[in-house]
Amino acid sequence: MIQVEGLIKIFHRGSVNENVALSGVDLHVADGDFVTLIGSNGAGKSTLLNAVAGAFPVDAGAIRIDGRDVTRLPEHVRARDIGRVFQDPLKGTAASMTIEENLAIAARRGLRRGLARGVRGGDREEFRALLATLGLGLENRLRDPVGLLSGGQRQSITLLMATIRRPKILLLDEHTAALDPKTAHLVMDLTDRLVERDRLTTLMVTHNMEQALRHGNRTIMMHRGRIILDVSGEERRGLTVKDLLDKFHEVRTDDEGLSDRMLLA
């Protein structure tokens, strides 16, 4: 469960580059909800995701995960409850380390790390079984450095890493945007499988409207740091990509109208 209340984030406050990325966002994501988040560039989607993950302090508002206020907790502490996959396939894994080492790091997320062996004998069986579900043949390459793998393979491993210890919430930041269409499709399939398996509370940012409607059970559109559309259930089922595009143009035109008025005033 994610509760976001009155979240405000202003970058470069007080400078000419001042940018209100989040201007009072309220969002409640129930347990097991899979929310897709869309919006134009600069709408605040990724900022919202990063604010929940704790990548930077927010200027106002509160963030709760499963009822616990995490607003002031640093990123690495929040990470105990959060699985994350980034847009850049290189960002989720350590290239110089082997597949099994990467998975072992993720398998200890939220646990104390001591002087026990990083990769234990029992781990390997588990990792092999997990990797086999990808169907990429990686189960026989446990000791290969991750740097040798393709972007799609690395993103698949990152997904496994984000979910190997069941996270309270899963944050996906355009995690298929940098992949070719076929690989993107594979990674989305895997995402659906993993989310379903553990009934994960998920927040997924995407640029792809079709993806936003096909996956998950709720879609949110952001614009200028606010949520301007929030659909689920019946209403969402009837929605088409065209409807979403129309909504986009509607708010764009509103903006222009506003700025015209401001100029005239």
Partner: peptide, 23 residues
């Protein structure tokens, strides 16, 4: 090659990743 050692190596390799893994 210990749990801590892996975290240390990942810190040099990819700080964003190891932070997201709670280190």
């Amino acid at each position: 090659h210990t749990e801590l050692g892996l975290a240390l190596r990942a810190t040099g390799d990819n700080p964003a990743m190891i932070t997201a893994q709670g280190v």
